[in-house]
Design a protein around this nucleic acid. Structure first.
Length: 455
RNA sequence: GAGGUUGUAGCUCAGUUGGUUAGAGCGUCUGAUUGUGGUUCAGAAGGUCGUGGGUUCGAGACCCAUCAUCCUCCCCA
């Protein structure tokens, strides 16, 4: 058979992996400096843990795992019935008890709900793991991709929104990616819905205005009319998304529009507090109040974030927000949460396009020992072991091939030094170290090698 | 779920209105060179043209199906 991997998945070679690890380590170290602790959860969750949390579209994209033992003749009748339910579009424990995680937030909520008795609140955790979605792959979109999440559970303080904004800023500064952090508040969108046909219209309205960039004002209005809004209400929506200017100017106009609606007031006040706080920092995050930002995930209730890379055509490279009742879905009321996520794979694509990776992250082996014969090989084995004790990565060519071949091997693996110890050097207790970049070489005593190769 | 692109050597790709034995560059291997490569020169290996069917005297090329791929929409990171 022809070897292949599933659609939307990738193998990562050494060069790619070193760049990916650079991104992961940068994010991890920033998370740690803000006091977040690591957490890992299983690749699979119970299907019912995930279903119904991501909206109708999201549910369709969850990878479900077929149960084992369905061919057991004793269970044939039950399996047939369960399978018929699947054919009608229902998910069913009898067929798929487990599913691959779709994001890191719901598993986190499940974890908090399971362990809230033992956790010190607020609980700040970060999580760096792959997630899976049965999406059509395309540019910046994969079926297996990595997310880096930082969430806080058990605190309603706006301090967290401020610090999470700073985390975004610090990470993208370190990664050398120019970004805008778009921010909005679901309470404001809720207020808009309240005066435009009721709160249950919020999803329809936000989905429509989210498309403003792509389809334009007229089509947005058409869609709203299609959803049953009156002309007056559509006009209100239009004046809402027409709000422009600086962040402060936008907030002032919002005040005029929603000043009398309690939820709206609250949302505006929260935005104002967060922005005032982060703008005093140095470096100040590039925050943009984006009233068309809605985010599809159902569980957000307050602040919402989305990060866009500037100068590259790519969907958002990060997102997040506040959810006041996430663990409520798992029977534990009253634990508020807020969190952000980094999309590693898109960040990688952006950095690759912008050439933003620093020099010097491709280092692997430092020195290659040439193989000049069996006797020398035994001697070199000991020399290499000593170097490794000093933390120097080295390897020995596997056979006494022509130097030509050994040089090429070193070159292809980006190894900066070759060490040649032939019978003459073995006898004299020396080694020849050749720097490949310059072509210069010197003969040194064995006890001097570590110092030279360490630079 | 809807629409489109592409599929020829290990890699990147040529291949005319259908016409003999399908090509190039890079890479690989061998030699010029028995302990100093990268240049150069000479030579070699490597393809049932994604797969299956059809049209034709004749298909890499045309038609149908199928699989894979990349992209757009939907949605998202």
């Amino acid at each position: 058979m022809k070897p292949s991997i599933p659609q939307g998945t990738r193998d990562f070679s050494a060069a790619v992996l070193r760049k990916r690890n650079f991104i992961l380590q940068t994010i991890r170290s920033v998370f740690e400096t803000y006091g977040f602790e690591p957490l890992e959860t299983p690749a699979m969750e119970n299907t019912e843990t995930l279903m119904g949390k991501y909206g109708e579209e999201g549910d369709k994209l969850i990878f479900k795992i077929l149960n084992n033992g369905l061919n057991n003749p004793d269970k044939r009748e039950a399996v047939m019935q369960d399978f018929n339910a699947v054919l009608e579009g229902k998910t069913n424990k009898g067929i798929t008890e487990r599913a691959l995680r779709y994001d890191l937030t719901i598993p986190f909520a499940r974890y908090v709900a399971m362990h809230h008795g033992q956790l010190t609140l607020p609980f700040k955790r970060y999580q760096i793991q792959p997630v899976w979605r049965a999406d059509r792959p395309q540019r910046g979109r994969y079926r297996e991709f990595w997310q880096c999440d930082a969430d806080v559970a058990g605190s309603a303080a706006l301090l967290h929104e401020v610090e999470l904004s700073l985390i975004y800023t610090n990470v993208f500064n370190k990664l050398n990616i120019p970004v805008e952090i778009h921010i909005n508040n679901r309470k404001i969108l809720g207020a808009l819905a309240t005066i435009c046909g009721g709160e249950d219209m919020m999803i329809d309205i936000t989905i429509a205005i989210d498309k403003l960039d792509k389809i334009g004002m007229e089509k947005v209005k058409d869609e709203l009319i299609g959803k049953g809004l009156t002309m007056e209400q559509v006009d209100t929506v239009e004046s809402f998304i027409s709000i422009s200017g600086s962040n402060e100017e936008k907030l002032v106009q919002l005040d005029e529009l929603f000043g009398t609606i309690p939820g709206g007031q609250e949302g505006i006040a929260e935005l104002r507090t967060i922005l005032a706080s982060v703008e005093k920092m140095n470096p100040s995050p590039q925050m943009v109040v984006d009233l068309s930002l809605a985010r599809g995930l159902n569980y957000y209730t307050g602040t919402i974030f989305e990060v866009k890379a500037l100068g590259v055509q790519m969907g958002s490279i990060g997102g997040g927000g506040r959810y006041d009742d996430l663990t409520g879905l798992f029977g534990v009321k009253g634990i508020a949460g807020v969190g952000i996520s980094f999309g590693v794979d898109r960040i990688y694509d952006v950095m690759d396009e912008l050439n933003a990776f620093p020099e010097g992250i491709q280092k692997g082996t430092t020195a290659l020992f040439f193989n000049t014969g069996m006797e020398e090989q035994q001697h070199v084995l000991g020399v290499a072991e000593n170097l490794r004790k000093s933390g120097i990565a080295c390897e020995i060519y596997h056979e006494a091939a022509k130097f030509d071949k050994q040089f090429k091997y070193a070159e292809r693996k980006n190894i900066p030094f070759v060490v040649i110890i032939g019978s003459k050097e073995m006898e004299a207790g020396t080694a020849i170290i050749k720097t490949l970049a310059s072509g210069t070489q010197t003969e040194v005593r064995l006890d001097e090698m570590a110092k030279i190769l360490a630079h």
